[in-house]
Design a protein around this nucleic acid. Structure first.
Lengths: 260, 260
DNA sequence: CCTTCCGTTCGGCATTGTCGAACGCCGTTC
DNA sequence: GAACGGCGTTCGACAATGCCGAACGGAAGG
């Protein structure tokens, strides 16, 4: 069933991701142990990656770290995302108006990835950063996207092994979440009330693309103590308005899904 | 002589970089032609990369584009750069004070790579972006780094095929550049006066690491028409001061190279 | 000085990736 | 509407390629 993969390419990716998953500096020995490969196999792949600038060896410790080429490629990807270009100025404006941190996230497999983040002037907690993955079931951006997926998609993303509790407020029951998603669709926005991190409250709204699909969302995050009724309402208004604006810029037509 | 590379990994990298070098969307046919590989070979590698999230296929056109995983990895690399963390707040301050765009760049092979960029309020030209490569001989950041390399290093980086003229002011004579680098060392800063782009003037200063090596630099870029004697002097003062501060934060001791 | 540890090199074997050809699914053309 | 062309995909056979274990060499530590 699984597609036929080129073994050595697959292993090269394993190695690269190992740096992200564990330590930023690894020796050949460590890599070969963690991936259960012989040292010489790892050596060959690593030298190839190093030769191309995707890894670099510290001349002193002889350990390896991720190379600048990955930085270049990653930024090339980021710059080619049109949603990012469209949303950036709006995000800047949102932060100025709301004085709190704003995130832009896209869906990727069963999680979301933050593609833009602009911190407010008085940031306290920083659990997120651009390029980081986050779960869908306990983040504002995640739920805002999830609520607008097909049932099969939702089922897959709510597969039990994903529903990890991050705080005591994290919802981990699939059927309860499904109910909750309906509320989100009715409201047009999602709220995360200390579900990913204690003391953190977020409001998120879905972004529709030209086909009417939701693959991205924006959110405003603030320490819960700073969110009173008034500022909460303001967040909802501004975030949903901005999301609509971005959707429109992406070619989304109207509230009703288009029928061809 | 060239290290023994794993062919399929090397080819996978060729494919990824092809997206950066040419178009952001490529079909298997295009790739196999440009790399002179059979379609099936390309297919195998591409499916592996897609399976891991490093490429994604547009369901309509069936063409491929770079995947989010590269964005994640690239940002992980960016976040692990300590020079970036140190320099970021200083760069922000510089932009506020100078009202012009500030760059942070690091040396990579025979070129420099921008790792941070903060635009001034009235930006006109944007030839650069984070993650982009630039030549050493005609940029402020490049010359500021180049001036402090070893003679062999300078020779290599001034290899004739790199000395491309970007404007009528670009210096393309190696010996003339070598003279020019001496001036830079005497001054402690480098000036790029329309050498990479007409109408653009930059001041750049080297950043020393804890071993006294220069692997990075910062610069301030402005439209030449806005740079009068007074603002030019201010740029020089502020950029060199900031560079010194970053060097100190990296563990650089004093103007004299340390002897162990 | 001996030991240990780790990166690197080597050589033989079989796995794996490679290629060309063929397939099948479009959309286009006549 | 049938034939064509273009493209992604699959198949099968061959041998090149990457794999492993063992051995090497240099550095650090006792």
């Amino acid at each position: 069933m699984t597609v036929k993969v080129i073994q050595s390419v697959d292993r090269a990716i394993d190695i690269l991701e190992l740096f992200m998953a564990s330590k930023p500096e690894l020796s050949i020995k460590e890599i070969s142990e963690k991936l259960a490969l012989s040292k010489s196999t790892v050596h060959g792949i690593i030298k190839t990656l190093e030769h191309r600038g995707y890894l670099q060896q510290d001349p002193e410790s002889l350990k390896y770290r991720l190379g600048i080429k990955l930085f270049e490629l990653g930024n090339a990807v980021g710059n080619s995302m049109d949603i990012r270009k469209i949303a950036s100025p709006l995000i800047r404006r949102l932060v100025e108006e709301l004085h709190e941190t704003v995130h832009l996230a896209v869906m990727e497999r069963e999680e979301v990835v933050y593609v833009e983040k602009l911190e407010g002037p008085r940031t306290l907690t920083i659990y997120s950063h651009v390029g980081k993955r986050a779960p869908v079931h306990c983040t504002g951006v995640g739920k805002a996207i999830l609520a607008y997926q097909s049932d099969e998609q939702i089922d897959r993303m709510l597969a039990s092994d994903h529903l990890v509790a991050h705080t005591e407020h994290t919802m981990t029951d699939a059927t309860a979440i499904r109910e909750h998603l309906k509320t989100i669709r009715d409201n047009g926005y999602a709220v995360d009330d200390e579900e990913i991190e204690l003391g953190l409250k977020c409001v998120a709204a879905p972004i529709f693309d030209h086909q009417g699909n939701v693959t991205a969302s924006i959110s405003c995050s603030a320490p819960k103590v700073r969110v009173d009724d008034h500022s909460f309402a303001e967040m909802i208004g501004k975030i949903t308005a901005a999301a609509s604006e971005i959707s429109a810029a992406l070619g989304y037509r109207n509230p009703q899904p288009v029928n061809l």
